[in-house]
Amino acid sequence: MKQKIKWKNMIIPIAMPVIVFLVFFICQPERFGTPAGIMIMLQQSVINSIIGFGLSLNLVIDTWDFSAGAQLVLAGLVGAYYSQYYGLAGLIVVTVLVATLLGALTGLVYFVFKIPSIIVTIGMMLVYESLGSLYHGGANVTIDMGISFLGRSPGIFIVGILTYILAYVIYHHTKFGYNVRAVGNGEATAKSIGINSLKIRFLCFVVGGIFVGIASFLQVSYGGAIAPKTGMNTMSMVFPPFMGVFIGQYLERYCDIMLGIFLGVFSMTMINTGLIAMGLPGTLQQVVTGCFMLIFMAISINREQAVLKSRKAAA
């Protein structure tokens, strides 16, 4: 019995990326799945996974953070600007610091005003977007190619692995992580055992900001430049990580949630790359990606309900 559970825990988490890979590999064996291509897809999954690690803390306790993309852009703009004076250290320190402060500010607004997280974070997103367009006259900031090595292999993988370890430790081996899970499992119960759920929600924004900061300096290094975004355009930046978190939450019963997030993001990246390899027109690429997301959510939610129904029937 034990052996069966172990196999299930290994097979199910990797089933989705494997299936996605095989679908595209069978359709386009010459264009999809080359070693270089797999390396690129892994590389591209790192940044969204790190954003997902940060967002997952909030999503676990049913708090939505739509401001993460705007935080990332604003922190990236400030960090990229300071990298012109302080090099890589300026980029990393300033980016992480600014993103953490912005996370704290969002958390503070949520903490003080006690309004729903969706409203707070959309409001803060608009504020951060505007600040980004005001900062340095709204100009694009390009970083020196010499300090962009963290945006490519092996730098991006080293940062990615270290961040994964950090997320794993925070979630599984700290008091904060236990409290997050306790609030996620039931706020009333958590309160009854003395956990201040509002404080935990505030801290989730702060810790989430650290991960957004790490993703921000990786993004600037990877793209070589960053531009302000306005008109709620930063909101679209959080959807791929959100999707990764949804998949991660589903896979949590089989593996670590953070690993699940990475596998989810990696699967989404493969879909994007695969659709390009198939030569699909740009508009159709978005349709297929949207359909995949809908199908996954429909299956995972309905499956849970079906299991619950069958358990009730059995009882």
Partner: peptide
């Protein structure tokens, strides 16, 4: 964004 464009070009290259 610059990052999304970099991704797109990498996908083309792959």
């Amino acid at each position: 964004t610059a990052e999304e464009t970099t991704k797109a070009v990498e996908n083309f290259l792959a």
